[in-house]
Each structure stands twice: as structure tokens, then as C-alpha cells.
């Protein structure tokens, strides 16, 4: 964990040992992280892992119970938030205004000149946002967030419910911003998107349990891949045996599985299958973490 002196604005946003408690519930627990210019940082974790709460603390929308959140090296303030483009899950658009009017409003709010409607939204310039498809609304929310050329982009599940091509184009925009020097903090449930990030942060139960490259996040988790003609039967048999089963296409995978033990299970169920050890995925690491949480034990930190 890199620590910078308090005055250094080398990180666009940074949290230092930030915790947030709601009643008896630790929504965020001792999280230290940062985002620098030019990098795309992926924030991963299950529903309720504390991702959105952390984002809201970083933006200064809610205060931390303990610890310190910094924007541009200073405590978050309204003035500092001007250098941020934020797209919440709810998008934050006005349904009763047209595309052009939403853009106009955002531009005025950031003291920008009246913007022209981006080419891919031009057909809808005078359509009420409430009448647009979700994918189009997301593109507009992006366009609004980028209007004032923010130094830091914060995106909460930007591609949820969007078709593959639009998703690819949204990620093109994300990378263009990073290439132009902006920092991007993005949450996603989609592991193919996580791989497009320069750096990953994995949260579980409010804590930052891993960070770094995909390899770093996967940590010591291993995986075994099982190919069986009757993959559904193999899946059920291993599931019944209490293994952390996932699927990749029609291959059955077991996180932290012991190939020998798995072989015994499959033989007992008379399911012919090929078993081999393979590199684990981020999803498997998350599955292992979730299972650890369910039984109440402490998940391993890497």
C-alpha cells in the first residue's frame, strides 16, 4: 500500500483507513486505496460488499466514520467535485427534460459553453430522456459526465443491462479518457470488463481484500476444470459434495478444488470426466470469499 504525504495531489482520489459504520453494520471497514491520473481502476465485489458506500465517501457525499478520504489531495469539497465526472447507477438524468436540455443543464452547472449533442445521440436530441432506452440513457449520462473534461471519472456499474456492442463502445470511451490523462474508478460485475482495467480492487464484507493485477486479485485461489459430456450431472454431483462449483461455458469448474477428491466424487456418481488444474478466475476468488463469509470465517487477505 503506497502512502503519499498529505499535500501530494499525485492521486486524484485516495482513501486512508476509511471506515463507515451504519448502526452495527460495517459498510466499509478500514479501506485504503487510490486512483491516479491515466489509470482505469476496477472496483469489484459482491452486492453489499461496500463498493457504492466507498464511492460516496470518496466523493464526499457521506462522511467516513473514521479515516480520511481525499480528492486531489484535499478533503472532498464542492469545489473539488467540479473536477469529477460521476455516473451513479441511477444515472442522475432528468426524465422530463430532452437530451439537449439535460446536456444544457449539466453544461451550465459546470460553467461550460452550450454543448452540441454527440453524434451517436443526435437522432434523439429532442426526445425526453424518460422515453429513451436504457442503453441510450447511459450514453447520455456518460456524455453529461464528460462535458467538463473531468480529471476523475467515477462510474458505478456503467454497463449493466447494455448490449455487447454498446458496452464495447462505452469502454472505448473509458479508455480514451484514461489515455487523455483522466483517472477512472469503475465498478462492474462483468469479469471481461474487469480485465480491461489497469488495476483492480476487490472488496468483500466492507473490506478491501485484494488489489493489484488480475493475478494479484486471484491470489492463491486455484481452480480445477472438469469436462464431462453430461456436464449438468457433473455439476450437480460436485455441488452436492459441497464444492465451490462454477460454470464456464459447459465446463464445470471448482474453485480451490482438490483434483483427487473431485475425481472420487465423480467416480462415485459414475460420471466419466476429464479433470485438470487450471488458472483461477476473479469470479472464483469471489466465490471462495463468499463461501468463507457464509460460514463466518475470516476470508484470507492477500
Amino acid at each position: 500500500m503506497t502512502r503519499q504525504s498529505t499535500t501530494s495531489p499525485s492521486f486524484l482520489t485516495e482513501s486512508r483507513a476509511v471506515s463507515k459504520r451504519f448502526g452495527h453494520f460495517d459498510a466499509v471497514d478500514d479501506v485504503s486505496m487510490n486512483v491516479a491520473g491515466g489509470e482505469v481502476v476496477g472496483l469489484l465485489g459482491a452486492n453489499g460488499a461496500g463498493k457504492t458506500t466507498l464511492i460516496r465517501i470518496l466523493l464526499g457525499l457521506i462522511g467516513a466514520s473514521t479515516g480520511e478520504a481525499l480528492l486531489m489531495g484535499e478533503p472532498p469539497s464542492r469545489e473539488l467535485r467540479r473536477s469529477i465526472g460521476y455516473v451513479p447507477q441511477s444515472l442522475g438524468l432528468y426524465d422530463d427534460l430532452t437530451v439537449q436540455e439535460n446536456l444544457d443543464f449539466t453544461a451550465s452547472a459546470y460553467s461550460q459553453p452550450r454543448p452540441s449533442v454527440p453524434a451517436d445521440l443526435a437522432d434523439h436530441a429532442d426526445t425526453l430522456v424518460g422515453d429513451l432506452a436504457l442503453g441510450t440513457q447511459r450514453r447520455l449520462a456518460f456524455a453529461c459526465a464528460l462535458l467538463h473534461r473531468p480529471a476523475l471519472l467515477v462510474l458505478d456499474e456503467p454497463t449493466s443491462g447494455v448490449d455487447p456492442l454498446s458496452r464495447a463502445r462505452l469502454w472505448d470511451t473509458i479508455h480514451q479518457q484514461a489515455d487523455a490523462g483522466a483517472g477512472v474508478l469503475v465498478t462492474t460485475h462483468y469479469m471481461q470488463e474487469a480485465q480491461q482495467c489497469h488495476r483492480l480492487l476487490l472488496m468483500s464484507g466492507g473490506r478491501l481484500v485484494a488489489q493489484g493485477s488480475e493475478r494479484d486479485v486471484i491470489g492463491g485461489t486455484t481452480a480445477v476444470e472438469i469436462s464431462a459430456d453430461d456436464w449438468a450431472a457433473a455439476f450437480s454431483a460436485l455441488e452436492r459434495a459441497g464444492e465451490a462449483v462454477t460454470l464456464d461455458g459447459t465446463d464445470v469448474r471448482v474453485a480451490d478444488g482438490d483434483p483427487y477428491r473431485l475425481q472420487l466424487v465423480l467416480e462415485a456418481a459414475s460420471i466419466p470426466a476429464q479433470i485438470r488444474s487450471v488458472p483461477a478466475t476473479i469470479e472464483e476468488r469471489m466465490t471462495v470469499l463468499a463461501r468463507a463469509e457464509r460460514v463466518g470465517s475470516t476470508p484470507p487477505t492477500s
Binding site: A46, N47, A49, S160, G161, H189, V245, T287
Partner: peptide, 8 residues
Amino acid sequence: GVDPVSRV
């Protein structure tokens, strides 16, 4: 909108 673990 469901996380990877619940999706599994």
C-alpha cells in the same frame, strides 16, 4: 445487476 457469486 446481480454480482458474480449470486449469478453462479
